[in-house]
Computed example of a mutant assay.
Amino acid sequence: MNPHSVLLKGRRVLVTGGARGLGYAFARAIGQAGARVVIADVLEERVQQAAAELQALDLDVQAVSLDLAQPASVEACIGATLGLLGGLDGLVNNASVTNSGGKGTEALSIDTWDQVMQVNVRGTWLMTNACLPALRASGHGAIVNLASDTPLWGAPNLLAYVASKGAIIAMTRSLARELGSDNITINAIAPGLVEVEATAYVPEARHRLYHDQRALQRPQLPEDVSGAVLFALSDLARFITGQTLPVNGGFVMP
């Protein structure tokens, strides 16, 4: 029996970027913890396939389309989500882009910088705002923002992404003070270099750096991050807000 099968029983959770990788793993874990889940992604065909795969595991997971770069798409996503779930208790802001890797600051284009900030920072802000009325109405709303450990150690040649994830950490702290009176918690999870499709481009030397410098010297898998997300969404974390939890096998110990 899954020990977490009732941890989120009856909760309604939206996971952005749920078509694959970390978001897919989060949706599976959240569904296995008893929640009803909507996964949203710009990869429309893949997100529908992901939902079907999770439904085949007898999980209550449905899919909607989302392009965080388009404010109208954000509004349509939350409208569709509320139509499917009837309300919202949790939001996992997982979707992001990572297309600034491998280039030093002088080689980084303005267009790339703007795209990363538009999706990762503005998109997270817009999605959070769109969900706030429903999260307030739930009486126990919880937001989990996916940051990264890269701003905690200053990863080089990844400036736009590092800056965007540093902004997520700062936004989490500020919003915690704004949303506390609404009984909404908001925390950030900062994974290390996880073995997913989105990190396939990362040079082998960077993978070796993480592996060799971790206290736990093995590859980091999406499932290694899911427990922290479940905890932050659950009643076990109701008096924790504004915090950033590194989940990286001991690569960074702030």
Rank of each mutant, 00 (worst) to 15 (best):
P203Y: 07
Y210W: 15
Q118D: 14
D182C: 08
G141P: 07
G192E: 04
N183R: 14
V196C: 12
N129G: 13
Y161G: 01
A142L: 09
N183D: 10
S164Q: 02
L175T: 07
G166L: 08
A134L: 02
A188V: 11
G123Q: 03
H211I: 08
P133T: 08
V194S: 07
A200L: 12
L158M: 12
W153T: 03
Y161H: 08
C131M: 03
V194I: 14
P191Y: 05
T128K: 04
R173E: 14
L158F: 15
M117E: 10
L179Y: 01
L132E: 03
A198Y: 04
R214L: 07
A205H: 10
P191T: 09
A134I: 02
S181T: 14
S174K: 11
V194A: 07
A176M: 06
R122N: 11
A130I: 09
A205S: 13
D182K: 06
G166Y: 05
G123K: 01
A130P: 09
L152M: 14
A200V: 10
L126W: 05
L126T: 05
R208Q: 13
A155H: 15
A170V: 09
V144I: 08
Q213G: 10
I189C: 04
S148Y: 05
H207G: 08
A205K: 12
S138P: 07
T128V: 03
S148W: 00
A147R: 11
C131W: 00
D212A: 13
N120T: 06
L135A: 03
N145L: 11
H207L: 10
L135T: 00
A170I: 04
A137W: 05
M127E: 03
R208L: 11
I189P: 01
S138A: 06
V202G: 05
S148N: 03
A167R: 00
V196D: 10
G192V: 01
Q213V: 01
H207S: 12
A160T: 08
H211N: 10
R122H: 12
V202F: 08
N129S: 15
N187W: 01
V144A: 04
R206T: 15
R206F: 14
Y161V: 02
Q213Y: 06
R122M: 09
I143T: 01
A200C: 09
G154Y: 06
D212I: 11
M117Y: 09
A147F: 11
H140G: 11
G192Y: 01
D212E: 15
V121K: 02
R136H: 13
G192K: 01
R122Q: 09
A155F: 12
G123S: 03
Y210T: 06
A198V: 09
T172M: 12
V119I: 15
I189Q: 03
Y201F: 14
Y210P: 00
H211Q: 12
I168M: 10
G166A: 10
V121Y: 02
D182T: 06
L146E: 01
L159H: 07
N129F: 11
E204M: 13
N157R: 15
T128P: 00
A155P: 06
V194M: 08
A155I: 11
S138K: 00
S181C: 14
